[in-house]
Design a binder for these strands. Structure first.
Length: 530
RNA sequence: GCCCCCGUAGCUCAACGGGACAGAGCAGCGGAUUUCUAAUCCGCAGGUUGCAGGUUCGAGUCCUGCCGGGGGCGCCA
């Protein structure tokens, strides 16, 4: 068991079970480090059902578990039980958990198969900054899940059919002077003019323009994403879905929930109280054209059909109201509405020199994802995008992200990696290599603090994978960096004393591995020098 | 009018099933360096968690109402 906390929780749960007590023991960090390594509120939880005072139960609980080999001390404090771990146990864990380089992912621990769909921008223009946020989150979530032993894939959906494509066609025609007016819902960006010029010059038949434009725009989007270190296991086109058997399947399976009104076919989404849709939804318009909702259901059925048991979608805030009908639809399709998990990625506000940057100018020009990568780079962009909980709006400070200095958290973290690499290199030049087996205890408090922080890594990875709270990863790495910098400040590693040097180098090497693994999960570079 | 998200230090944000004295970074002030990289470290200061009630042994977290910001309420996608 690689997660220290998860391991201890199980140990304690088992011990209590032996005493005839069943309680979901959860360990947390005590408010102040001197109180111990972990704390549990289990006594409070037991108090309710056993109808006994928590303080008393905590003392009893402490007595029951204090002789566990991992535990040096268990102190009851109020209703809490604070645990201090045995140094020997911590060291043994460190040596066991961090032996391999690079750190290996956890073994598969579920039958679930996850597909995360994100960005899925319309192929009618360049990617924007919210797409950059969704890309960072979706990609990192997949990386973390895989590392945590949950099979997961990335997917990109292309709406290359329907009204917007007609609008694109019309917009290009207009820009090429083949049409009097811009369509009402047309696109006015300069990229449309560029496309018009190119397509015209290359003598592409006018009827092919939209198709060709979509191809080029999509390629451009995927290229920007590749530069951002995001690739997809699958890119699925709506035009392909339309030709597939899935639309027919949707019609058949939804039949019991369909009715006609005013010439249109409605899906009775309100028939599923679990998902609380306000009203029934049109599936087929009165003119015979299916709605976007219909094609989207077909697409999601296709996902389930490929063996995915959990469908995670990252949507923009303007799609909030779309969730209930989609879940109801999947329920009716037999996929199960609860299999769909929608993460709403909130907006991104750009600031430069403290001033709000207007993202959309007139004529369809806007600050695009490419501009962001060019201005602040991939590392800073990914790091900043991952730092906040996805369902809260994000203020992105371009000036700060660009700053090559102390106040920039990206460099703080990267610097700790560069520093540790340099330290190991220096040691090697002096003839010292890390020796794990010589690590038997701690000779300085900062060593223990660092070791304890390292052992949180696999716990964190599992927590992030389960909770989907990707922002906890950069926060942990920031914390871990701080701990390492403190260690570095307080503990001289390379000295004349060869044995002490080499056992300290073992701890240093473990830090390097964890930091490297953590940065990899975020898709952020781990520099060797800065 | 109804639905969803957000409101925590001057600024940007944490707070892991409701848990202990609400924590970081930045900005501010004061210190540490002829370094195994100072892109670092240490210290000081900074709070009625938007407001008012409620539930609970215990609320930033749950419930109700209100205020403020954002988004949605199409036979658009």
């Amino acid at each position: 068991m690689k997660g220290l906390r998860h391991f201890l929780e199980q140990e304690i749960r088992q011990r209590l079970k032996d005493r005839g007590v069943e309680v979901e023991v959860r360990l947390s960090l005590p408010p102040r480090p001197e109180m111990g390594d972990y704390a549990t509120n289990a006594a409070f939880l037991m108090a309710r059902t056993l109808r006994r005072p928590p303080g008393e139960l905590a003392r009893e609980l402490a007595k029951w578990i204090q002789d566990l080999p991992a535990i040096a001390r268990a102190d009851a404090s109020g209703g809490f039980v604070n645990l201090t771990l045995e140094d020997a146990f911590l060291v043994q864990q460190l040596k066991e958990v961090f032996t391999e380089d690079p750190l290996p992912p956890l073994p598969t621990r579920t039958r679930e198969r996850v597909v995360v769909e994100f960005v899925s921008a319309n192929p009618t223009g360049p990617l924007n900054v919210v797409n950059a946020r969704a890309a960072a989150v979706g990609d990192t979530l997949v990386r973390v899940m895989r590392f945590a032993g949950i099979p997961a894939d990335r997917e990109y959906y292309v709406n290359d059919a329907g009204g917007q494509i007609r609008a694109l066609q019309g917009s290009i025609e207009y820009r090429a002077g083949r049409r009097e007016t811009l369509p009402e819902d047309g696109y006015g960006g300069t990229y449309v003019a560029d496309l018009a010029r190119a397509l015209d010059r290359e003598n592409i038949p006018v009827a092919q323009w939209a198709k060709e434009a979509v191809r080029r725009i999509l390629e451009g989007q995927l290229e920007v994403l590749r530069r951002y270190r995001v690739t997809f296991e699958a890119v699925v086109r709506e035009s392909w879905i339309r030709e597939s058997p899935y639309p027919q399947l949707v019609k058949e399976r939804l039949a019991p929930y369909l009715y006609e009104k005013e010439g249109a076919v409605y899906f009775r989404s309100t028939a599923f109280p679990d998902f609380r849709d306000d009203k029934d939804r049109v599936l087929i318009r009165s003119n015979g054209e299916p709605t976007y909702f219909f094609w989207d259901l077909a697409y999601h059925l296709y996902k389930a059909d490929r063996g995915y048991t959990r469908l995670i979608d990252l949507w923009g805030p303007d799609h909030q109201g779309y969730i209930p009908r989609m879940k109801a639809g999947l329920e009716a399709l037999g996929v199960g509405g609860h299999q769909l998990e929608v993460m709403i990625v909130q907006q991104v506000n750009l600031f430069r020199e403290g001033q709000r940057v207007r993202m959309s100018k007139r004529k369809g020009e806007f600050y695009a994802m490419e501009d962001l990568l060019e201005e602040v780079g991939v590392d800073a962009t990914r790091f900043f995008m991952l730092q906040r909980a996805v369902n809260t709006p994000l203020d992105f400070d371009l000036t700060l992200a660009r700053t090559l200095s102390q106040e920039n958290p990206v460099y703080y973290v990267q610097y700790s990696h560069a520093r540790v690499v340099n330290l190991l290199k220096y040691a090697r030049e002096k003839g010292h290599a890390p020796e794990f087996s010589w690590l038997e205890g701690f000779t300085h408090p900062a060593e223990r603090t660092l070791g304890r922080m390292l052992l949180r890594f696999y716990d964190l990875v599992q927590d992030v994978a389960d909770s989907r709270e990707v922002h906890r990863l950069p926060h942990y790495l920031l914390d871990l960096s701080r701990t390492f910098h403190q260690f570095y400040q307080n503990v001289r590693v390379v000295t004349e004393a060869s044995r002490e040097t080499r056992r300290r180098l073992a701890l240093v090497e473990m830090f390097r591995r964890v930091m490297k693994a953590g940065l990899d999960l975020m898709g952020v570079e781990a520099p060797e020098r800065m």
